[in-house]
C-alpha cells in the first residue's frame, strides 16, 4: 500500500450553466520518499490536484488516501488538523502575511500548537539557518526579495515537520538561479525524508525529480 493513493478522482467546476471538468478519473500512487513533479499545459488540472491533495478543495467523486486516512471522510476540522500535521504548502506567489515579520510568518503554524517559547525559538533558529535567513528574521516580509520570500514560505511550510510538501509552481516567480536555490532546498528536504510534490512548467525541475506526472486535459498521461 502506497503512502498516497488517489483513486478515480474527478473534480468538476460549475460556473453558471457551464461544466468545467478540471480533472477526471485520475489514479495515482505516490510513495513515502518520492520527489514528484506534476507538469502539463496551463489549465490541465495541476493546481486542482494539489488543492485536493491538501484538502483545500473537495472532489466531485473519487477519494484520496493519505497514510491510510481517507481524507474526504473527515470533518473540516479534522482536515485542518491533517493539514497542520501532515502537509506544508508552498505557492507561486508566496502567500505570506504582509503585516508580519519573517519570524512571525515562519512561526504561524506553531501559534496554534502547544510549543512553548523556548521550543518555538529552537525550531525557528534551526529553520532560519537552513533557509539562510537568520539575519533577516525581524524584517517585514514585503522588504524581502522574491527568493527570500519564497524561502520564508518554505520555512513556514516545514516548521511543523510535515511529511508532505505540496508546492504549486514555487519557482514560477523567480529567476532561474534563485529558482535553482529553491529546488536545492526541496531536494535536501526530500533527502531528509519528506515527500515532495512540485507542480511546474519548468523542464529543469522535471529533471531533478524522481517521478514525473504529466497532465493533459484533466487526465494523467501514461
Amino acid at each position: 500500500m502506497s503512502f498516497i493513493e488517489i483513486n478515480n478522482l474527478s473534480k468538476t467546476y460549475y460556473s453558471g450553466e457551464q461544466k468545467i471538468s478540471a480533472i477526471s478519473d485520475v489514479n495515482i500512487t505516490i510513495d513515502r520518499n518520492d520527489f514528484v513533479s506534476v507538469t502539463g499545459a496551463s489549465g490541465s488540472g495541476k493546481s486542482t490536484l494539489l488543492s485536493l491533495l491538501g484538502g483545500l478543495n473537495i472532489p466531485s467523486s473519487g477519494n484520496i488516501i493519505i497514510d491510510g486516512i481517507n481524507v474526504f471522510s473527515l470533518s473540516s476540522n479534522q482536515i485542518a488538523k491533517l493539514r497542520r500535521e501532515y502537509i506544508g504548502f508552498v505557492f507561486q506567489s508566496f502567500y505570506l502575511i504582509n503585516y508580519l515579520t519573517v519570524e512571525e510568518n515562519i512561526l504561524l503554524p506553531l501559534s496554534i500548537t502547544d510549543y512553548n517559547s523556548s521550543q518555538q525559538k529552537f525550531k525557528l533558529d534551526k529553520i532560519l539557518e537552513r533557509v539562510g535567513l537568520s539575519d533577516k528574521k525581524g524584517r517585514l516580509v514585503d522588504e524581502l526579495s522574491g527568493g527570500e520570500q519564497q524561502r520564508v514560505a518554505i520555512a513556514r511550510a516545514i516548521i511543523n515537520d510535515p511529511v508532505i510538501i505540496l508546492a504549486d509552481e514555487p519557482t514560477g516567480n523567480l529567476d532561474s538561479s534563485t529558482g535553482n536555490q529553491i529546488l536545492d532546498l526541496f531536494e535536501e528536504l526530500n533527502k531528509d525524508g519528506k515527500l515532495v510534490i512540485v507542480v511546474t512548467h519548468d523542464d529543469n525541475v522535471k529533471k531533478r525529480t524522481s517521478n514525473v506526472i504529466v497532465f493533459r486535459d484533466g487526465r494523467v498521461e501514461q
Binding site: G54, L56, S76, N77, A80, K81, L82, R83, R84, E85, I87, F89, F91, Y95, L96, I97, L108, P109, I112, R156, N160
Partner: peptide, 9 residues
C-alpha cells in the same frame, strides 16, 4: 492562507 497552514474555523 491561514487555512492552508492548517487553521480551523
Amino acid at each position: 492562507i491561514y487555512r492552508a497552514i492548517g487553521f480551523n474555523n
